[in-house]
Simulated scan of single mutants.
Amino acid sequence: MPTWKLSTEFTFNAAHQIRDYNGPCGRMHGHTYTVKLEATSHQLHASEFCPHPVMVADFRTLKWAKKDVFKGGLDHCILNEVLPEGYETTAEMIAKYIYDKTKKSLPDGVKLKVAVSENPNSWAEYEDD
């Protein structure tokens, strides 16, 4: 069975504080977050921007989070004010939030993995089988 894998990476800037954290991360601070997404599919699809079944997913759809917060993304926001209840602002939960919101925009059958980093040496990944 043929398989296509699409990967993309982008950054966005945001501030946050981890609720009830005993240390510096409990205070408001900012990061340049790096996000890596992988989308895998056994068939190609059309997208909101292209009517032909020629892609796993549209890069524009995958990169929604890099848009300015006032345009529906996460760039230059305070994550504590933007993420819905139930999502803490750890890298793990930010990865899950980006996964959940992105997955809703993808065709059925597309497998997704999201990785988020607050610094070059540490990553959190989320995927759901």
Rank of each mutant, 00 (worst) to 15 (best):
Y99N: 05
M55L: 10
K66M: 15
E85N: 04
L79G: 01
K63E: 11
V110D: 08
K103D: 14
N80W: 07
E48T: 08
V56R: 02
F70N: 15
S122T: 13
S105I: 13
K101C: 07
A91G: 01
D100R: 08
L106T: 02
L62A: 04
K104V: 14
C77V: 04
P84E: 01
S122G: 10
P84L: 05
V54H: 10
P120G: 02
D75C: 09
T61V: 15
S105G: 12
W64R: 01
E48P: 07
N121P: 03
P84K: 01
C50D: 13
G86W: 03
C77K: 00
T102M: 02
G72A: 05
V82Y: 06
K66S: 09
P107K: 02
K101S: 11
Y87H: 06
N119S: 14
N119C: 15
L74K: 08
S47F: 14
G86K: 02
K104T: 15
E92A: 08
L62H: 05
L106R: 06
T102A: 02
H76D: 09
K103E: 14
H52Y: 12
K103F: 12
L83D: 08
K67P: 07
P84A: 03
D68G: 08
E85T: 06
W123K: 15
C77W: 01
M55R: 14
A115P: 13
L83I: 04
E92W: 07
P120L: 09
W64L: 00
A115H: 11
V54C: 11
A46G: 06
V114L: 04
S122E: 12
V56L: 00
Y97Q: 06
W123E: 14
K111W: 14
V114F: 01
D75F: 05
